[in-house]
Amino acid sequence: MKEKKRVRISHDFREQLGLVLEGDGVNYCYQCGACVGDCPTARFSEDFNPRTIMQSVLYGLKEEIASDTLPVWMCSNCFTCFDRCPQEVKPIEVIIALKNLMASEGIVPKGVEAAAAGILKTGRSAIVSNTTVRRREELGLPPLEELDAGELRTLLDADANGEGEK
């Protein structure tokens, strides 16, 4: 006989998530599944389902959703669930809040942190190369302004590597 998994409901996790901007929207979720129908990620993968992610949050099943690979990082960030939800849960924003919470514990997929750190190093999300400079010249565009990324770091209390004091 298949062993039944016991669900231990934990409200702490939901409360913790509620402290992140728009992480508390999940409390209005009544599990209707409107977020699933037009979700492109759910269409292409059985491993991602916004309704079950909301359910896991409601139960406080942190270990099911807090990993650097699956499933929240599969989200396409398309905002369709934001538009579909009759309860204004904004599932995408709850998923982003989950990512924020995981990031504060150091759980981040490769590449994501580097992309964000680049912004605090140069002010831009893309690296200006010699090709960029040459191509802009050829197209008759003005040269790119040198940005004061130090100002951005001051704003966020981050150090020179773009690491924030969270």
């Binding site: 992140v20 901007l21 728009e22 960030n77 982003i96 809040a97 990512k99 924020n100 990031a103 504060s104 981040v108 994501v112 942190e113 992309a115 964000a116 912004i119 999300s125 966020l156 924030g164 969270k166």
Partner: peptide
């Protein structure tokens, strides 16, 4: 950027 930067710290 509304994807990576936002996912680290909204």
């Amino acid at each position: 950027d509304p994807v990576f930067f936002k996912s680290l710290h909204k």
